[in-house]
Amino acid sequence: MRNRTAANDARNALIQDIDETNVPYGMVALWCLGQASFIVKGGSTTIYIDPFTIEDALVESRHGLRRAYPSAVRPEDITNADYCLITHDHVDHLDPDTIQAMAAQARETLFFAPACCREMMLGRGVSPDRLHIADTGKEYSGQAIIKPIAAAHEELSIDQDGFHEYVGYIIRLNGVTLYHAGDTLIYEGLQARLREEEVDLGLLPINGRDFYRGERGIVGNMNYREAAELANGAGFKMTVPMHYDLFAGNAERPGYFVDYVYDHFPSLPIHVMARGERFIYAAAGAVKS
């Protein structure tokens, strides 16, 4: 009972930390929930990206997966989301239990997801008026500017209506441009596109792929070398590696990414997120218009 109470207190403290964090213009605050799950706050706007918060026992019983560590928040804790962005339909990115709780509790939350995720999102209680299709040909303006960008996991996949099934997001929030890659390989034109976007803060997967994971049905991503090369080639001001720590069978050591950057791009700023850490990124020269 004491351990459960302590865990609940820590989860409540994280939500409180998000709510109470003051993020001046030209900055964003970042919290990592593991895998590709992030919470981003700029000004008074809070964005959840691929929130995967289901408990280990449920993940294992329903999906045969075992988390390396517990979620920092529970689905029922999330009441402060202005936006929820989903990159694709794999359970560690589109967590049905988390979406259902968010749809019920955070009545003002706007959801973005690829078209192939629409029925799942509606089935979990997201109302049609709050659900936007992540169309890579469009830009959405509101409290943040959100631009879906195609992802190749491991291929660029398009549904029968012409929508990409895997996406990342360019987010312009509070004077900062952030790129969350989702699950992707590097494909032709991606680096040039990202350079045009002038990304301040890039979140890139580093877990890679190989024959044996492919044999187990695990779809891969860029590896740590490719992530470092992309970050440098695209001119990211800061890079945070992701998607390496939550499942033992699909993991990578972030130190390999750090070492590669140190050896090849020693002037490239990077940051490895600690569990439960609040990381504040400040964009150089951001000026409020």
Rank of each mutant, 00 (worst) to 15 (best):
M1K: 07
R2G: 08
A6P: 00
R11F: 02
R11C: 10
A13N: 13
Q16D: 13
I18L: 12
D19P: 01
D19G: 11
D19N: 15
E20R: 10
G26W: 05
M27D: 03
M27Y: 02
V28N: 00
V28F: 01
V28S: 00
A29C: 10
C32W: 13
C32L: 00
L33F: 14
L33M: 15
G34Q: 12
Q35D: 10
V40H: 00
K41L: 02
G42E: 07
T45Y: 01
T46F: 01
I47L: 13
I47Q: 04
I49F: 05
P51G: 04
F52C: 13
I54R: 15
I54Q: 15
E60S: 11
H63V: 04
L65I: 01
A68V: 07
Y69L: 03
P70E: 14
A72F: 01
I78R: 05
N80D: 12
D82T: 09
Y83N: 07
L85S: 08
L85D: 08
I86H: 05
T87P: 01
D89H: 09
D92I: 15
D92W: 13
L94W: 01
P96D: 09
M102W: 00
A104E: 14
A106V: 03
T109A: 10
T109F: 01
L110A: 05
F111K: 06
F112G: 11
P114H: 02
E119D: 15
M120G: 05
M120Y: 02
L122T: 14
V126Q: 10
V126L: 07
R130D: 12
H132I: 04
H132Q: 14
D135M: 00
G137H: 10
E139S: 12
G142E: 05
I145D: 15
K147H: 02
K147S: 09
P148R: 02
P148Q: 05
A152E: 12
S157T: 14
Q160I: 06
F163N: 14
Y166A: 12
Y166R: 12
V167G: 03
Y169A: 02
Y169N: 04
I171T: 10
R172A: 06
L173C: 06
L173I: 15
L173D: 09
L173T: 09
N174F: 08
N174K: 06
L178P: 00
G182I: 04
G182F: 02
T184P: 10
Y187T: 03
E188H: 11
L190A: 10
L194K: 07
R195Q: 14
E197V: 06
E197C: 08
E198I: 02
V199F: 03
D200K: 03
D200S: 10
L203P: 07
N207P: 01
N207L: 08
G208H: 08
E215N: 07
V219P: 00
G220T: 09
A227S: 15
A228E: 12
E229N: 13
E229V: 06
L230P: 11
L230A: 08
N232I: 00
A234N: 07
F236L: 05
P241K: 09
P241W: 11
Y244K: 01
D245S: 11
D245G: 02
L246G: 01
F247A: 07
G249V: 00
N250Y: 12
R253E: 14
R253Y: 09
Y256P: 00
D259Q: 12
D259R: 10
P269A: 04
V272Q: 11
A274V: 02
R275D: 11
R275E: 13
R275F: 08
E277W: 08
R278D: 03
R278L: 11
A282I: 08
A283E: 13
A286K: 12
